[in-house]
């Protein structure tokens, strides 16, 4: 079976863990529980009739006190940049993490998701900013870990891109 390491990147409290838990266990908690270090989870998906195990590295949220360790990113086949639509600053963090990821793992598939689509009226990230991201070649999805909206699509889309862009190693078959 093919295993692919996928890192969840983003500012703190944007919902990285919630997205993973919704995807892996289909659960959601309103309670915020910060991640220290990295939590590793696995989930298999079927891409083009092939089973792919996504090894999800749910990294701690980056802020001014904790920078993401390059070692956590090494070996990633792809990554997900998570933003909180209600906090404009998380877009800036995502842009910075994108640079870190580029420097560490090079050009691998990634998807940006703006979480908390369930409170769209409170969003601070506006259409203009989203449009600018898309103009830079980003795939930007909207989702809600709380509602489960866009979560499956997020991981499957990334897995598909990873599978399409990377050769299948013989030991993974």
């Amino acid at each position: 079976m093919m295993q692919k390491k996928v890192c969840m990147l983003g500012g703190f409290a944007v919902g990285k863990t919630s997205l993973v838990r919704r995807f892996v266990s289909n659960v959601f908690s309103e309670h915020y529980h910060t991640t220290i270090g990295v939590t590793v989870e696995k989930k298999s998906v079927k891409i083009d009739d092939r089973d792919v195990t996504l090894v999800l590295w749910d990294l701690y949220g980056e802020d001014e006190f904790q920078r993401v360790r390059d070692s956590y990113l090494r070996g990633s086949s792809g990554y997900i940049l998570v933003m909180d639509g209600t906090r404009r600053a998380t877009l800036d963090t995502a842009l910075a993490l994108r640079q870190t990821a580029m420097r560490t793992v090079g050009t691998v598939p990634f998807i940006a998701i703006i979480n908390k689509a369930d409170v769209r009226s409170e969003w601070e990230i506006d259409e203009r900013a989203i449009e600018q991201l898309r103009e830079q070649g980003w795939t930007v999805l909207f989702g809600s870990a709380k509602l489960g909206q866009g979560v499956e699509e997020l991981f499957v889309t990334l897995a598909t891109q990873i599978v399409q862009t990377s050769p299948i190693p013989s030991d993974s078959l």
């Binding site: 991640t35 220290i36 270090g37 990295v38 939590t39 590793v40 989870e41 360790r69 070692s71």
Partner: peptide, 8 residues
């Protein structure tokens, strides 16, 4: 150091 990690 590897940094902390959490696994099942």
């Amino acid at each position: 150091k590897s940094g902390p990690w959490t696994e099942p």
